[in-house]
């Protein structure tokens, strides 16, 4: 946590920073390479490698292995298998029905990708690099090439939401056709309500993925800001009192609190990746031909 090391502003903990050594490379005055970009890339590589290893373990082995070929070996592959099965059978299948297979790779990818970003954000990579840079190499400035929670960056969550938006809309056009898509914008309301319904439904198209982005971003920012505040209490106490005993007591309590909040953050990391994936599934389901009719029939009856 940057704030723990060098900052007195907890918000700095979640802000994106340029990668040390290449700060001078800019585009329109903005750094081209940032730690969140590096974390994002790392998350993609880690997710791919872990899933690839899990895929090899989950796949059915050769017949010569007997019944053992149906077993998945390794804890992480087993967890991935169980989570994937749960998401497929209990979350995605009930919403998408026969279209499950088509969207399963996308939905599972976005779930595991966000989850990895969230979990990697829990590990203080940047802080370790700053300490190593200062203690080991005598760096005067804070030195870090990657770290931080990528999903606490609104640009990252917006990017993921844009991908979801395109997937949802492409499915809507393919499933409903242009006419069906336009009809869907009316929300099944009578003609005289169209002046109200059309703008609302049109804005809703963008608000839904926008809400996905803001929800994930806000949750990650809130959790990490709280952690930063908790870890800063000791420093604040020292600056205020210059009393090491009081500082130590406050730091001990705030550290225990930070550990507890970290467990909550771990839960939030899973929950938010699930919510992002689940709501994307629901939005895709709403744009399916079958659901569209049901939705309108429901609206007409009510």
């Amino acid at each position: 946590m940057f704030t723990f090391i060098a900052s007195n502003n907890p918000i700095h903990h979640i802000l994106d920073k340029p990668i040390s050594g290449v700060e001078h490379i800019t585009l329109f005055g903005k750094p081209v390479f940032t730690t969140h970009m590096a974390s994002l890339l790392l998350a993609a590589i880690v997710t791919f490698v872990v899933l690839k290893i899990a895929a090899k373990r989950i796949a059915i082995g050769h017949e010569s292995e007997g019944t053992n070929r149906y077993l998945t070996n390794g804890r992480i592959p087993q967890i991935i298998e169980v989570v994937t099965l749960y998401l497929r059978d209990n979350v995605i299948q009930p919403v998408l029905g026969h279209e499950t297979k088509k969207f399963l790779p996308f939905l599972l990818s976005i779930f595991y990708f966000i989850l990895t970003c969230n979990i990697l954000g829990m590990i203080p990579f940047a802080d370790v690099q700053v300490v190593v840079g200062k203690v080991g190499f005598g760096q005067e400035t804070d030195w870090a090439v990657f770290g931080g929670t990528a999903t606490s960056n609104l640009a990252v969550t917006a990017g993921l939401a844009i991908v979801s938006f395109f997937v949802i809309q492409m499915h809507a056009f393919k499933s409903l056709g242009i006419g069906g898509w336009a009809h869907h914008l009316t929300g099944g309301a009578p003609l005289y309500l169209l002046p109200i319904m059309l703008p609302i439904e049109f804005m809703g198209m963008f608000i839904k993925p926008g809400a996905l982005a803001i929800r994930l971003f806000a949750n990650m920012v809130a959790g990490h800001t709280m952690l930063a505040v908790l870890t800063m209490f000791g420093m604040m106490a020292y600056e205020g009192t210059q009393n090491w005993l009081l500082t130590g007591s406050i730091e001990a309590i705030s550290t225990i609190a930070a550990v507890c909040i970290s467990f909550l953050e771990l839960f939030v990391a899973f929950l938010q990746s699930f919510i992002f994936m689940f709501l994307t599934t629901v939005f895709i389901g709403q744009m399916s031909h079958h659901d569209e009719h049901e939705e309108h029939a429901e609206a007409a009856t009510s």
């Binding site: 990818s109 976005i110 990708f113 960056n153 640009a155 990252v156 990017g159 844009i162």
Partner: peptide
Amino acid sequence: TLGTTIVVF
């Protein structure tokens, strides 16, 4: 960052 996210993902 937004563009990088889309490309990476």
